[in-house]
Design a protein around this nucleic acid. Structure first.
Lengths: 120, 120
DNA sequence: TTAACGATTGAGCAAATATTCAAATGTATT
DNA sequence: AATACATTTGAATATTTGCTCAATCGTTAA
């Protein structure tokens, strides 16, 4: 019989008690992953620019494309991703689709982030 | 003589005035990219878990590795990235390096993000 | 000095991602 | 019906990225 292969988590425990306490307080896996996904989506230069623009006015796809000097296709891809993630919502008026921020949480996140990078 | 190749930004203007107004209000490129970079870094499952853990206690590399069932190398890589970004800070005590969150902005970001995904 | 060990670092690989390109929708106008 | 046009969609590509592995660094204790 071979010896049991040790779990990776048993190899190097320095503060077993701290690990156990924190493990007990940690949120479940799912909400942490959802939060990470939210940050991942707004954590892109193009999408951050789109969000910054939508803070001032709802805009249609080609206006955002013109503002950022990019193709409508690229913008549409990013807007779709943000819509699925619940970051933006859209309304159609004829041929034109207008996008705006879904709720005030997104603005709050950017306000805090700007504070962070400017050092308060 | 061939005709001028039109700029991409001149192709499809629907609301020229809106674009101009928003362009005038938009923050400069640099801070937007910095904010996007901050979100990009916390927008990863592993790094979000690390941050969630550090909300409850400062921890050393191998304790975080044990908590998340990952290698110390992987955790150290992520901590380095977060340290450069000003998200965590560290102190050394002998062989052990303890990490903690750099400031309260990071916690605020996560609080708001959790609100967002739970719908208030 | 040597050994032990927590932490760091760099190279390399597999997986994820943003944009481009081409084609297809959906709506309004002629 | 047919055209025009804003938008969407899917596939393909180039780039980015997270982890592993191995080697090294920094500190402590024998």
């Amino acid at each position: 019989m071979s010896k049991d292969i040790p779990d990776i988590c048993e190899l190097n425990f320095i503060h077993q008690d701290t690990v156990n306490i924190v493990r007990g307080k940690m949120p479940p896996e799912k909400p942490i992953c959802d939060v990470a996904e939210l940050f991942r989506i707004i954590g892109d230069t193009t999408r951050s620019k789109i969000i910054c623009a939508l803070r001032f006015s709802e805009m249609c796809v080609c206006d955002i494309a013109a503002l950022l000097n990019m193709t409508s296709s690229a913008i549409s891809h990013q807007l779709h991703m943000m819509k699925v993630a619940g970051i933006v919502i859209s309304r159609r008026n004829g041929k034109i689709v207008y996008y705006r921020l879904a709720d005030e949480h997104i603005e709050q996140l950017f306000n805090i982030a700007f504070e962070h990078i400017t050092g308060e």
